[in-house]
Amino acid sequence: MSAFEASAPAAPPVPASFPPKELRQACDEIVARYPTRMAACLPVLHLAQKHFGGWISPEVEAGVAAYLEVSDSHIRGLLTFYAMFNTRPSGRHEVWVCRTLTCWLRGAAGLRRTALAKAGVDRCGVESPDGRFLVKDMECLGLCEVAPAVFIDGAPHTEVTTESLEQLMDACE
């Protein structure tokens, strides 16, 4: 799980205007699928995270909350519950390394070491100093028959080796 901030920020964030023009139609369509606005939270947050550079800032959080008529603490509660959301800047490339049993049996621990070294960080969940990578250790990604599995920017890579992971990460800008 990513680290989280416990104390409320000193000054309340200024809510981002949400949804932005580009997302307006998609968001409204999502809301229309459900009997409550709250139910649209997860799909709308997915769109928002993609649109706003891979993470949900306090401002976006407040904007989404206003749009869906829920409290910002509710949104924060979701962001910290679901592993795919980021509440901190996520680097230009997000690297997920599966850590669960099958992948671990097939060498995931080495992949994590490689990914962290490439990113130049000592633990998962923090952006690399150059802003290039965010390495996250994830639980089973459902690709166990082709383990070990890694996702880079939402795209799955399978039967990954330390060498192939280095190549994949080198190819990231």
Partner: peptide, 8 residues
């Protein structure tokens, strides 16, 4: 389709 977001 309702997408999850990473929670077993």
């Amino acid at each position: 389709v309702h997408p999850g977001a990473g929670a077993y």
